[in-house]
Simulated scan of single mutants.
Amino acid sequence: MNWLLVIIGSMVGAPLRYLTDRAVQLGHDTVFPWGTLVVNVMGSAILGLLTGAVAAGHASPHLQLLIGTGLCGGLTTYSTFSYETVRLTQTGAGFYAAVNVVASVAAGLGAAFVGVAFTQALWR
């Protein structure tokens, strides 16, 4: 049963990643990978909210598999982040590569911490 929850979540997360990435990137005329940054921060925020809800006893481990492992696993993409950062470096856009690394790590961790803090404050 658990594997089915992960598969269902992934079936939603992966296309959502692709469509969100394309929509965001089309709105920006730059080499900076805004689409990947957005999906990774969104996934981190969702996972932070879910982790806080599970820790507070307001979400089940099954929901954690469906949304956390499945949806967020399909939505977020460390491999694309890595590839795009390497490509920026190879094409001479080292500044954008550095900004991508710093912004992705800071915003991703920040979104996760805010999500957990929000659910902790909500269910105190």
Rank of each mutant, 00 (worst) to 15 (best):
V102L: 13
G73Q: 07
G92D: 09
Q90A: 15
Q90M: 13
G68Q: 04
Y96E: 07
I67T: 02
L65T: 05
V99T: 04
F95P: 09
F95A: 12
G73H: 01
G70C: 07
G70Y: 04
L71P: 05
S104T: 09
R87P: 02
A98Y: 03
R87F: 00
G74D: 02
T77R: 11
I67P: 08
R87A: 15
T80C: 02
G94C: 05
T76Y: 09
T85K: 08
Q90L: 15
N100Y: 11
Y83M: 11
G94T: 14
T69E: 05
T77F: 08
L65Y: 00
G68K: 05
L71S: 09
R87I: 08
G70D: 09
T91G: 14
V101G: 01
T85M: 10
I67W: 08
Q64A: 06
T77P: 12
T85S: 15
A98P: 04
N100P: 05
T69W: 05
F95D: 10
T89P: 01
V101S: 00
T77I: 02
A98V: 08
V102S: 00
T77G: 12
S82W: 05
C72W: 03
S104F: 10
L66E: 00
Q64N: 00
Q64D: 03
L66R: 03
T69A: 14
G68S: 04
S104A: 12
Q90W: 06
A93D: 13
L66S: 03
G73N: 01
V86D: 08
A98Q: 03
A103Q: 10
A93V: 01
R87K: 14
V86Q: 14
G92N: 08
R87Q: 12
Q90V: 06
V99F: 11
A103I: 15
T80S: 12
G74E: 06
T69D: 09
L63A: 12
S82H: 13
T85P: 15
Y83E: 14
Q90H: 11
G92L: 05
A98G: 08
A103S: 15
V102H: 02
A98I: 14
G68N: 08
L63D: 01
C72A: 00
T69Y: 00
Q90G: 11
G70S: 11
L75F: 03
V101N: 06
G74M: 11
Y96R: 13
T91H: 13
L75G: 05
